[in-house]
């Protein structure tokens, strides 16, 4: 969590200099779910994600240097500068790709799970999505097929209440719960507060075990909140789509701060250890930014293997 937070904060502070020339959807405030989920995954497990994918990529173990270089449009980027922030990949750790269209990777994750089932490969597939994706037709198609074929796929819905600036109340009926709807489609579901670390732990541990034990697909819905603007490095409580009060109510419950305080109080983590951890992370982040800035810009140097695979 701390790692993701520090990386994202650094991106936010460097972004205004104009060297990262692509849309940027930061995960600050949404670190808890992917950070906890990764405790139950290994490299045989796959993950696919969305336009807001930095936290998912980093939690899965994605290479930091390759991600930062990608944001800078460099050849050493994880997608050779062709994808930018919204198209991250690290095949070595099973992070199979994030894409920019809401709902786009849902069926792709399901297809990866189908290939695992047919090839009898180990591991499960995590499909990250937001609340907005549950409004897409392809969401129901993906849930339906996963139940039909009893596939090893875990849908992780991070409900942050907003699709860009449109809040849930203008998009979905008031009393309908996403996880209940999915449950009614025949899928095993769990839900919880994604700002409560131990609850998030229990929900994700249970759901991951369920899928790993071969019971078929599962769906979890965890509430969360994005702190920064939909796209970009700043805060946007002043533009009028959400209230300062609402923001504060989430900000005050920051799971990272809560966890750190708890560990420090309990003595499980000393103040020095925590400071050392932050310094250590900072030096890794320093290196990633320095090498990204110094790297060569992307070029189509592998032609003619660019558009088509030879």
């Amino acid at each position: 969590m701390q790692y993701i937070r520090q990386v994202e904060e650094r991106i936010a502070s460097e972004y205004p200099s104009g060297e990262m020339r692509c849309p940027m959807h930061l995960s600050i405030g949404q670190e808890c779910v992917p950070a906890v989920l990764n405790l139950f995954l290994d490299d045989k497990d796959f993950a696919v994600s969305t336009h807001r994918s930095h936290a998912h990529y980093l939690a899965k173990g994605g290479d930091l240097n390759a991600m930062i270089a990608e944001l800078y449009g460099k050849q050493s980027g994880c997608s050779k500068g062709r994808g930018g922030s919204m198209h991250l990949i690290d095949d070595d750790v099973g992070f199979k790709g994030s894409t920019a269209i809401v709902g786009n990777t849902l069926p792709i994750g399901v297809g990866l799970a189908l290939s695992k089932k047919i090839k009898k490969d180990k591991g499960i597939v995590v499909v990250y999505l937001g609340d907005g994706a549950t409004e897409q037709g392809v969401f129901y198609e993906s849930i339906n097929f996963s139940v039909l074929k009893s596939l090893p796929v875990l849908f992780v819905c991070e409900n942050n209440l907003y699709s860009v600036y449109s809040d849930l109340s203008v998009r979905q009926p008031k009393h309908r719960k996403i996880h209940e709807m999915v449950n009614a489609m025949g899928m095993h579901t769990k839900s919880g507060n994604g700002y409560d670390v131990s609850q998030t732990y229990d929900v994700l541990k249970g759901a991951t075990e369920y899928v790993k034990e071969g019971n078929g697909a599962a769906f979890v819905e965890l509430s969360t909140y994005r702190w920064r603007e939909h796209c970009g490095p700043g805060f946007d409580n002043d533009i009028g789509y959400r209230t300062e009060q609402e923001f504060d109510s989430w900000y005050e419950k920051d799971p990272l701060t809560q966890l750190a305080t708890e560990l420090l109080t309990q003595g499980a983590l000393s103040k020095t250890e925590f400071e050392d951890l932050k310094t250590d992370l900072d030096s890794k982040i320093d290196f990633a930014f320095k090498s990204a800035k110094e790297s060569e810009f992307a070029s189509y140097d592998d032609a003619p293997n660019v558009v088509y695979k030879l």
């Binding site: 069926p107 290939s115 097929f145």
Partner: peptide, 19 residues
């Protein structure tokens, strides 16, 4: 299922997965 978009996505995922 009668789900052309979703089932193409499934095929793409299966293809990336080695089928």
């Amino acid at each position: 299922p009668t789900a052309e978009n979703g089932m193409l996505g499934v095929g793409i995922g299966a293809a990336i997965g080695g089928l």
